[in-house]
């Protein structure tokens, strides 16, 4: 059956054996979250903020280098940021307060700082998340979330998303092939109607599959929770390695606060 090998979700993962790959997933999650918190906590209007951003950037690029995540992969990770970027670029034009002249345009000084800060913070956080996604398999991430006590229901939903993304994707693909094999080209109002019908059929099929999966789970004694194996113990060294990223960022922040 046509489930593509690899699939959409696993495409983000780059197999490897670097020190970052070997870290336990929940340790990496904590590290990235802590890094993002430090980045977000940086006051945008402080005069030393740009220096701090540069320091964070250095820290996250160092982590990417250790993890063997190249510039191309990092740039592709940044694609998710585009909507934020558009918003950030607008800010200097729409915000009030003192104005500055840049290339003949009159821009808001605070809008510039806010927009720039937003962009910098988003970029840094996304870069850290990209390193995480590139070095951790989706299912390992899931186990990490579970160890961090994310509610079972959410973990199970995410687990089924990962498991069935390819199955549903394959179904969608087969439906498209079947449509086009009978001369459908899309476009126009009729095209939209056909796509609407496809979406409906996909929903019904997925719903029915959900019912069948649930039956199969009940048949093997499912009572509401998905039991997982015993968690592997985490070496203190892992925490030390992983937390070096947010700690470096926190040091930059502290230095800025003291100096400013």
């Amino acid at each position: 059956m046509g489930a593509a090998h690899g699939g959409a979700l696993t495409a983000r993962y780059m197999p490897g054996g670097t020190a970052v790959h070997r870290l336990e997933p929940h340790v990496k999650l904590v590290s990235v979250l802590a890094f993002a918190l430090v980045v977000v906590a940086t006051p945008v209007h402080a005069p030393w903020a740009p220096v701090a951003y540069a320091g964070y950037l250095l820290a996250v690029l160092t982590a990417a280098t250790v993890a063997g995540v190249g510039p191309g992969r990092l740039l592709r990770g940044l694609v998710v940021e585009i909507p934020f970027a558009a918003f950030a670029v607008l800010l200097p034009f729409v915000a009030g307060g003192p104005q500055v002249e840049v290339l003949g345009l009159s821009l808001s000084r605070s809008g510039l700082a806010a927009g720039g800060g937003l962009l910098a913070k988003a970029t840094l956080s996304v870069l850290a998340a990209t390193v995480l996604a590139a070095t951790t398999e989706p299912r390992a991430l899931l186990r990490g979330l579970e160890r961090l006590r994310l509610p079972q229901v959410l973990v199970q939903i995410l687990m089924f998303m990962i498991r069935y993304a390819d199955v549903v994707g394959g179904e969608l693909h087969r439906m498209r092939v079947a449509r086009e094999s009978r001369g459908f080209t899309g476009g126009g109002l009729r095209g939209l109607r056909v796509l609407g019908a496809t979406a409906g059929a996909l929903f019904v099929r997925s719903y029915e599959r959900g019912e069948r999966v649930h039956l199969a789970m009940l048949s093997r004694g499912y009572t509401g929770s998905v039991p997982t194996g015993p968690p592997a113990p985490v070496a203190p060294r892992s925490w030390a390695v992983a937390l070096s990223l947010p700690l470096a960022a926190a040091a930059v922040l502290a230095a800025g606060m003291l100096a400013g």
Binding site: L142, I162, R163, R209, R212, L215, T223, V226, G229
Partner: peptide, 23 residues
């Protein structure tokens, strides 16, 4: 069941086979 995609829902084969015994 007829469609193994309905029966195999865990992330890996080993975890899937372990699902029943763990229950």
């Amino acid at each position: 069941f007829q469609d193994p995609d309905d029966q195999l829902f865990m992330p890996t084969v080993g975890e899937d086979v372990a699902f029943g015994p763990r229950n």
